[in-house]
Design a protein around this nucleic acid. Structure first.
Lengths: 201, 201
DNA sequence: GGACCTTACGCTTTACGTAACGATA
DNA sequence: TATCGTTACGTAAAGCGTAAGGTCC
């Protein structure tokens, strides 16, 4: 069975007239007759009771008609939506992320995605760094959000944000008291020293 | 888009190898390449990322694959079931009946249908005789169950059963008292005469 | 060099249109 | 006789296979 035959069948089923159906299909009647006969042969059933005066659907034809419509509709929708997927208007992104990214990075990114690419759904997968790298290599993920991953052949890395690392130590520890330890800034806070320095230093 | 192209696409999508897909389809590789390229052209999207080392589905191809499977499956099911309809194993019968037939004739017939033709569903329509005849002529019904209909051109009539007509009259009516009135049998019953005679008489 | 996808080309099959035929009212 | 579906046949298009070309290990 071929889609062409289903298209021809639908035209005849709707017109109940080979001449008009052929005109609608922009072909002449004879090939239409041939295609319908071949379709009848492949499904093993007469689809139309036809005399020179009238064309009527048989029970088999009546049962085929809605199925044929549905199939042709599915085909058209599939074709259209595959085009949209290719254009990036519709689709799915599988995103892995370390759980600590769920506080700011991921929620902000999701909000931006919803606004700028409403047709793209995001499949969220909380995974530790190593699992993400493995999943990315096996194409089970499209994107990963990690902290401090070692460069990995076959994967591209982009810095999303740089964070300051905070050390909190008892105020009487040696590092806290040694102002020459290379700390950027520090302050005393309820008995502890909180030191901040930037990642890039 | 044609079904052949979807079949070829599915083969390549499952094998991820043009050579093996072609072998599975019992054709040589070159026509397969051509068909895939044409399919890609009609849907407006590249379906495979292919190098001489590997063939991989693109996002568009990934979205097409399950749709193609569903379409091909629908086509096969449609073909098979249309065949069954033609053989009379599956289908629907639209049955009209006068309400008085709902006591015995219709229930017995339905029980027999369920047992002997489990694939046939019966659409029941309670209608008076005139409505049934009209609906039958317009092919809105397949069968009608009526009482005592006048023969109608274009319709076949079959006697399902012959019923005895019962007259119940006060016992002092003249017909009740006249034993030569042609009644088959009669009996007195709480002040009435109940007379029975057969339709064929 | 080998594996694999693609392009080129000749041949077979399929599809289409015109014309002739058959059936029905 | 007019309408409409079918069959016959010549031509155009599509599909396939073999052979040659390109690219990546």
């Amino acid at each position: 069975m071929e889609l062409r035959q289903l298209r021809y069948f639908v035209a005849v089923a709707e017109e109940l007239h080979f001449g008009r159906a052929a005109a609608r299909l922009h072909i002449s009647q004879p090939p239409l007759t041939v295609h319908i006969k071949r379709l009848e042969q492949t499904v093993g059933a007469t689809l139309f009771d036809r005399t020179s005066r009238s064309v009527q659907l048989t029970a088999a034809g009546t049962s085929l008609y809605p199925r044929a419509l549905a199939i042709l509709d599915d085909v058209n929708r599939a074709s259209a939506e595959v085009g949209l997927v290719a254009e990036g208007q519709v689709g799915q992104v599988r995103l892995g992320f370390v759980s600590s990214a769920s506080y700011e990075v991921v929620p902000l990114a999701l909000r931006e995605m919803r606004e700028e690419h409403p047709g793209i759904s995001v499949d969220l997968e909380p995974l530790v760094t190593g699992e993400q790298l493995e999943a990315l290599m096996q194409h089970r993920l499209d994107l990963g959000v990690v902290r401090d991953a070692p460069l990995h052949p076959g994967l591209d890395f982009v810095t999303l944000r740089e964070e300051r690392i905070v050390a909190v130590v008892p105020a009487d520890w040696r590092i806290a008291l040694d102002e020459s330890a290379g700390l950027g800034t520090w302050k005393r806070c309820s008995g502890y020293v909180v030191a901040l320095w930037s990642a890039e230093e």
